[in-house]
């Protein structure tokens, strides 16, 4: 615990040095309509450099739509989305170049092995890396060396997710968008992934992740936005060295999202909801 506090303080210093508090992502009164149905209503939030922001919500809350808006695949019907202070609609390609996107199920080619996938996707992104760089990052995500030359059709979901994360890391973008990154992973893999995400944020990346995993979000996020039926109904902020209180988020999530099946523990009676 003591070590954790020290580490967090050190990170705060590095954050100062790296010029944190720069807005990397910004949703400004974002409205999105899909098939004549309002999917996002007046959503506003920001993600800063070095910050992990988790959008928490049930199915159909509009989480993935938010990510697709930042990538310019869905344009706002009202409001705007900004990436590095630039309107995404004005230059979609610039936004996409600045972002590494990790979809829910790692979208990689099954006929290729891990190295080939990395080479191919990085080549398309115009990122030049060596085999050594790839091995280093694959080591960091703990993908066994003997698995790297096997085609992905033989991989478990966790292994694929590791390759996808390695890809996001190797792209070395300032911003990461993660769509349900822990979905389908075993507990060890989830812990490992959280450690990596936290490390990336501490290295200065701005990370927006969408999830319905309350515990995971509380463990890794600096801020959590609670999304319900396309509305941002609350936001939780980590205070100092403390992580966001899981029970507080539980309570708000259960009452707003009406998705008690997602919760394994009863909600706390003392929610630390900063904004509803």
């Amino acid at each position: 615990m003591f070590g954790c506090n020290l580490e967090h303080r050190a990170t705060s210093v590095s954050q100062l040095l790296l010029g944190f508090n720069v807005l990397m992502l910004q949703a400004d009164s974002l409205h999105v309509v899909r098939s004549n149905k309002a999917v996002l209503n007046d959503i506003s939030f920001t993600v800063q450099r070095g910050e992990v922001y988790a959008l928490l919500g049930g199915n159909g809350a509009g989480k993935s739509t938010t990510l697709l808006s930042f990538l310019g695949f869905l344009l706002p019907s009202q409001g705007r989305v900004l990436v590095k202070d630039k309107d995404v609609g004005a230059d979609v390609m610039a936004a996409r170049r600045a972002i590494s996107y990790l979809p829910e199920s790692a979208s990689l080619y099954e006929h290729l092995n891990a190295i080939e996938n990395l080479q191919y996707f990085l080549g398309l992104a115009g990122v030049d890396v060596t085999l050594g760089d790839m091995d280093t990052v694959l080591d960091r995500v703990s993908l066994a060396p003997d698995a790297r030359k096997r085609n992905l059709r033989d991989y478990s979901k966790g292994m694929r997710q590791k390759v996808a994360i390695a890809l996001a890391m190797l792209r070395n973008s300032d911003i990461l968008l993660l769509d349900e990154p822990t979905s389908g992973l075993d507990p060890n893999a989830i812990d490992e992934l959280h450690r990596i995400i936290r490390g990336l944020a501490d290295a200065g990346k701005a990370i927006l992740m969408v999830t319905h995993d309350v515990y995971g979000a509380c463990q890794v996020a600096d801020r959590i936005g609670l999304l319900h039926s396309g509305n941002l109904v609350g936001e939780f902020v980590a205070q100092g060295d403390d992580r966001i209180d899981t029970n507080a988020v539980h309570t708000a999530f259960a009452s707003k999202a009406n998705s008690s099946s997602l919760l394994s523990n009863p909600p706390s009676s003392n929610p630390q909801l900063s904004k509803v």
């Binding site: 695949f73 979809p103 979208s107 992104a125």
Partner: peptide, 8 residues
């Protein structure tokens, strides 16, 4: 979505 998000 993965491919197009790369700027392709």
């Amino acid at each position: 979505v993965s491919l197009l998000s790369l700027g392709l």
